[in-house]
């Protein structure tokens, strides 16, 4: 059977493979090569060794974007997961209107980053207008604006995953805990949380990578203002590529570092939380 299947490569695998090479594989390889080159279009690339990598650390701009991104990611990941888990826990207690609540909490997730960014810009500016400032007056406003926006968008998504996890816990385990006289908090810490570890793994993965890679919301909410104080890595790379002539190589070098950091974070996190998962 394998042999027969093999002959059908051109029909089954080739279309995806061609698209994959054009949109991902070739750009990825070219991207790595270009990060060691000086170029404005691809064809005029000249090898310059590590110049690009040295160049991006000569100013604080990239480091600042990096620090801002890390801070934002930590705060967002913690708040989103705690709140989403709390909501999921509340919505699996059998209270009235569970479905309606779930529908409402999930909805913001479907709205795209650009639209979300402007919706929140208007809301936050409306509140700040009472104090005579706007969101771009201070980086602190932009930071918390982004955190609130991200919470609003991601809580519902993570809540759905946590609900599925909590519902997966078998009744027997819960019954046994009850018979053994475990209290509510004990059950939560000793049974529910360890049992939903697979959900925690996936939620941490999604919130970590999405927060770290955030672009659209950042562009729409503050566009990095004031100055570049609320610019995250994604936006910083974008403006290096398209906002500064002669910095294309530096932009590509930043992108390579960005990729390496995202990959390292994702793999480390998956490794660490997978170890904590227990058999259900």
């Amino acid at each position: 059977m394998q042999k027969t299947y093999k002959k059908y490569f051109a029909i089954f695998a080739l279309p995806t493979l061609i698209a994959f090479i054009i949109a991902f594989l070739a750009p990825f390889v070219i991207g790595i090569v270009l990060s060691f080159c000086n170029f404005t279009t691809i064809v005029d690339a000249q090898f310059t060794g590590l110049d690009n990598y040295i160049k991006i650390f000569q100013t604080d701009e990239f480091i600042n974007a990096f620090i801002f991104t890390v801070k934002f990611t930590i705060v967002s990941v913690v708040t989103i997961n705690v709140l989403a888990f709390a909501l999921a826990y509340a919505l699996t207690r059998g209270i009235k209107g569970t479905n309606l609540f779930r529908t409402v909490f999930f909805m913001p997730n479907l709205i795209g980053g650009i639209v979300l960014g402007y919706i929140w810009q208007i809301l936050i500016n409306g509140v700040l207008a009472k104090f005579g400032v706007t969101i771009t007056a201070d980086a602190t406003y932009g930071f918390w604006g982004l955190v609130i926006l991200m919470n609003w968008q991601m809580i519902g998504y993570m809540m759905i995953i946590y609900i599925a996890g909590i519902q997966n816990i078998s009744n027997d385990v819960m019954e046994a805990a009850k018979i053994d006289g475990a209290g509510k908090w004990q059950t939560l810490w000793k049974i529910t949380i360890p049992m939903v570890m697979p959900s925690i793994t996936i939620c941490l993965f999604l919130t970590l990578t999405n927060s770290f890679k955030l672009f659209d919301q950042n562009l729409a909410l503050t566009a990095g203002a004031p100055g570049k104080a609320t610019e995250m890595l994604g936006l910083n790379i974008y403006s290096t590529f398209y906002g500064r002539v002669g910095w294309e190589g530096a932009g590509q070098a930043k992108a390579v570092i960005f990729f390496l950091v995202v990959a390292a974070i994702a793999l480390t996190q998956l490794y660490l939380t997978r170890r904590k998962e227990v058999e259900n």
Binding site: A90, L91, T92, G94, K96, G97, N171
Partner: peptide
């Protein structure tokens, strides 16, 4: 909806008192 909610509660093996349930509903609303 009701039967769904009840099923959900049973799945998680935890039912809560009426009073807590009302407070929770208000907070969620």
């Amino acid at each position: 909806t009701k039967s769904n909610d009840a099923a959900m509660a049973m799945d998680s093996g935890m039912e809560i008192s009426k009073k807590t349930s009302t407070i929770l509903s208000v907070v969620l609303a």
